[in-house]
Write a protein that binds this DNA or RNA. Structure first.
Lengths: 151, 151
DNA sequence: TGGGGGTAGTTAGCTGAGCTAACTAACAGA
DNA sequence: TCTGTTAGTTAGCTCAGCTAACTACCCCCA
């Protein structure tokens, strides 16, 4: 095996998993600090993001996308609705389902909130070399795949 | 600039930050599922880990290490103490400070809980190529650095 | 055609994690 | 000694996550 691909010591799955776990905790804690300015918490921002970029969905689909139970998503959406960022309307043809749509204000706030939140991280990331940034970009893609259990 | 180091489209800090943010949310949500079995939540596990591997500390130092406010750490430690995983004793020479030490049971549970939690991720990671695993390992190190704001 | 079983969402009620503000206790130094 | 600072806790809030149980509804089939 070529040296540049040989696994370094500590590259076994458990060790990597452990480090990633810890890194993810600390990363999110840091980002949470930016919440206050936008009034959008991480789960709300994440859910709103799905609605804005993925288009209107139902609550159940949103819960599945966010890997959360329906009651949890009910509350998140209620919060977003209370703030006028999404609207809920019953789906014609199936009165059980609720179609959740982003309002213009929601779409706008998503951009602003996300920008604010990402600014902190981005400014930290700005100190990295291009190669390191590229590494993190690839890692993020990998992590999304791993998080969905679809490797 | 050589092709292998040229940044890919979307490698600007904001985009990478955005992806990492989302990936971290989803990763932790997945790992949280493993909490039930161990009875240790992510923050408790993380704090206990600092105490076990870093040795006895004070509450304030622990809060700083975990990037959390003192009252939050007070509660986390209270939970750990209630479960007999750490003990608190006042520091001789400064009656204000509390020395927090892991109990043997705490050290043992840390190993077990961490193993259980990491197992899920590790089994997901096991499907990755060695090079991908190595990439994630390097990413984790980078992220820790970034999260501490010490690039 | 009218039940019955499954599905979508909500409500109720709990735990835990995070925060600020305000407090107590103790230290340190002028 | 008195004043300011530091360590930690308490009180009280919000939000996010869960399960259990409920309502309302759809669909299928006898």
């Amino acid at each position: 095996m070529p040296a540049r691909k040989r696994a370094a010591a500590g590259d076994d799955p458990s060790t990597v998993a452990d480090r990633l776990h810890s890194a993810a905790i600390h990363l999110l804690r840091r980002l949470r600090r930016e919440d206050d300015a936008s009034g959008l918490s991480a789960p709300r921002l994440s859910a709103l993001s799905v609605v804005v970029f993925g288009g209107p969905t139902t609550l159940g689909a949103l819960a599945a996308a966010e890997q959360v139970r329906p009651p949890t998503m009910t509350r998140v959406v209620q919060g977003l609705e209370r703030d006028g960022l999404v609207k809920r309307e019953s789906v014609e043809g199936d009165a059980r389902s609720m179609r959740i749509t982003a309002t213009p204000r929601g779409a706008r706030l998503l951009g602003e909130g996300r920008a604010r939140r990402v600014k902190r991280l981005a400014s930290d990331l700005a100190g990295l070399k291009a190669a390191e940034l590229h590494l993190l970009a690839r890692a993020a893609v990998l992590l999304e795949r791993v998080s969905r259990g679809t490797p």
